[in-house]
Computed example of a mutant assay.
Amino acid sequence: MLDPYADIRPYNDQEVKPVLQRLSGSPQLINALIRYRYPAMPGWLLALLRPFISRKLRQHIARVEHVKDFQDMVADWVQQLVANSTDEVVVQGLDKLDHGTSYLLISNHRDIAMDPTLINYSLHQQGWPTSRIAIGDNLLRNPDIADIMRLNKSFIVKRSLTNKREKLKELQRLSAYIRESLEADQSIWIAQREGRAKDGIDKTDTAVLKMLALNGRARDESFAQTMAAMRPVPVSIQYEWDPCDAEKARELVIRKESGTYEKSSDEDTRSILRGLTGYKGRVFVDFGKPLTGEDIESAEAMAAAIDRQMNELTELLPVHQAAANLLQNRPCEGDEMKAAEELKRRTAALTEEQGKRLLTTYAVPAKGITGL
């Protein structure tokens, strides 16, 4: 039987071995692993190490037979990553959800790879099945990255299509895949908007919600009926410190001043690596309440309900008030003083406008600061 989702769905158990064999022979992946582990290694030594690393990689993945095996292997790496890049990860709200139910997890979007990684880390740590992850095809230009993501329960959102008819057809297929996944007891993670909220303001795009509801048309369902069947739950992900804060500030100011911003060819890859490995301080992952009733009557009502829960779940940290104080030339006290010193260090290499942009982003959770 023809698989209607073969080109977008995660890999299944039967595909794991062939994909891993292909990856273990990839020179690009071997080089990336060596550079990640030994960033200062000279090129000539890298060439000598390549066969050794390739052999070790094949030995390491030889015992991986199924998707769960791969995720267990990834979980060990994520555990180490979290330990090295955060002070703590605080997970709240899962105890108010039904462990045996699949949910449509709709979160804010601050980091390309770390957001879904933390969602699944939080689920895994508390004994829940991990979710399938929606990821844009713009991040999958590298076939090795695409393979790794699809091994790790990611499915592809084809954002690069320009033909309107083809795009609608693809969105309908994506919506059907998400619905069928939920009906198969597979939770889904998707961001509330396309692209990261680089200004720190989390706002749900109704276009995402309307896409999710497309599958209901073929079933003669209303928007509310479709969403009730998909069981949407807002999730707030909050980083005390953003490893990509300076880069985001530069981009926003350049875009504001020139009207456009051209990414370099490897910018997304560098952002992924910086976001994964950079220092984040405390991280908060808060699972909200399932949306029901009036909150899912329309895309507009649902977007407002998600935004409302996101705001309620946001933690006010010393860095937020410190940023607000620096913007308004007010003194800092207690823990805010240490945060203010770190903010000054982070803005030192930026222009005045870029520094103000960075501070404004951090100040958003502080009362009265949104819109500065």
Rank of each mutant, 00 (worst) to 15 (best):
V235D: 11
V235M: 07
S236V: 02
S236M: 09
S236Q: 10
I237V: 10
Q238K: 12
Y239Q: 12
Y239F: 13
Y239E: 14
E240T: 03
W241Y: 08
D242M: 11
C244G: 05
C244Q: 08
C244E: 09
A246K: 05
A246H: 03
E247C: 01
E247P: 02
K248W: 02
R250E: 15
E251C: 08
E251T: 08
L252D: 15
V253Q: 05
V253M: 05
R255H: 08
R255Q: 13
K256F: 06
E257D: 14
E257Y: 00
S258I: 08
S258R: 15
G259Q: 12
G259E: 09
T260N: 07
T260Q: 12
E262A: 07
E262N: 09
E262G: 07
K263G: 13
S264T: 06
S265G: 07
E267R: 06
D268C: 09
R270F: 03
R270G: 11
S271L: 04
S271H: 06
I272T: 10
L273R: 12
R274S: 13
G275N: 14
G275K: 07
T277E: 11
Y279C: 13
Y279H: 14
Y279S: 15
K280C: 06
K280Q: 11
K280D: 05
K280S: 13
R282P: 02
V283M: 05
V283N: 05
F284M: 13
D286T: 15
D286C: 13
G288E: 06
K289R: 11
K289D: 09
P290V: 02
P290L: 03
P290K: 07
L291T: 03
G293P: 02
G293Y: 01
G293F: 01
G293L: 00
E294L: 03
E294F: 01
E294T: 10
I296E: 00
I296R: 00
E297V: 01
S298P: 05
S298T: 15
A299Q: 06
A299C: 07
A301R: 05
A304G: 09
A305C: 04
A305Y: 00
I306S: 09
D307C: 03
R308L: 12
Q309R: 00
Q309T: 06
Q309H: 03
M310D: 06
M310A: 14
M310P: 01
N311K: 14
N311E: 15
N311H: 14
E312M: 13
T314D: 12
E315L: 07
L316K: 13
L316P: 02
L317I: 12
P318D: 04
P318I: 02
V319H: 06
V319I: 12
H320D: 15
H320I: 01
H320W: 02
Q321F: 01
Q321E: 15
Q321G: 13
A322Y: 02
A324R: 04
L326V: 08
L326P: 00
L326N: 01
Q328R: 15
Q328A: 14
Q328P: 08
N329C: 03
N329T: 07
N329S: 12
R330V: 03
